[in-house]
Amino acid sequence: MDQTTRKIVIAGVMGAISIFLGASHLGFIPWLAGAALTIMHVPVIIGAVLEGPWVGLAIGFIFGAFSLIQAAIAPTGATDVWFTNPFVSIVPRLFIGPVAWLVYRALSSGNEIIALGVAGVAGTVTNTVLVLGALGLLRLLPWGLIGTIAVTNGIPEAILAAIITVAVVAAWKRIETGRTGSTV
């Protein structure tokens, strides 16, 4: 049996979680000076780790397209102005899943938990660097400020993403293999 149905459904469901986290504002955590942290990219990482790079790409596209639509018709914060540009909102998000998957695959022969955590961090860093890089290249923000945002928002987001990725995937795989008890 080929895995197409599984890939389609997981991509759709993870895309829905990403949209849901954004639309319900559950995916935003208030942070310094109103620049909220986001975990909307975590479904992309989890989908990529579970089902591979193409699924990650599809979820990343849904995440990006939704953040573009949301920025345009239902803005939540001040920075939404930038995200109406697809080079900021969509293109960088396409890379989150494939990068997270590559990192996970490279490390998964060792400790699974560490591989998941590092994949979470790698996916987040991809998002932070590419989105801020796009803002810099489009001359919307001075590079000095971009460096500051990368540190103040990027680091806590990476930690959060790693925690959630590990918690969800470890719990899910345990259910699948029927093991009980905590290994985390």
Partner: peptide
């Protein structure tokens, strides 16, 4: 507004939400 408290309180919602969705999937 405390980041760590917010996060710790969100986890018991987020993790089951992911797991329930995967189950539905």
């Amino acid at each position: 507004r405390n980041f760590i408290t917010r996060t710790r309180r969100l986890l018991p919602l987020l993790v089951p939400l992911f797991l329930v969705s995967l189950q539905r999937a």
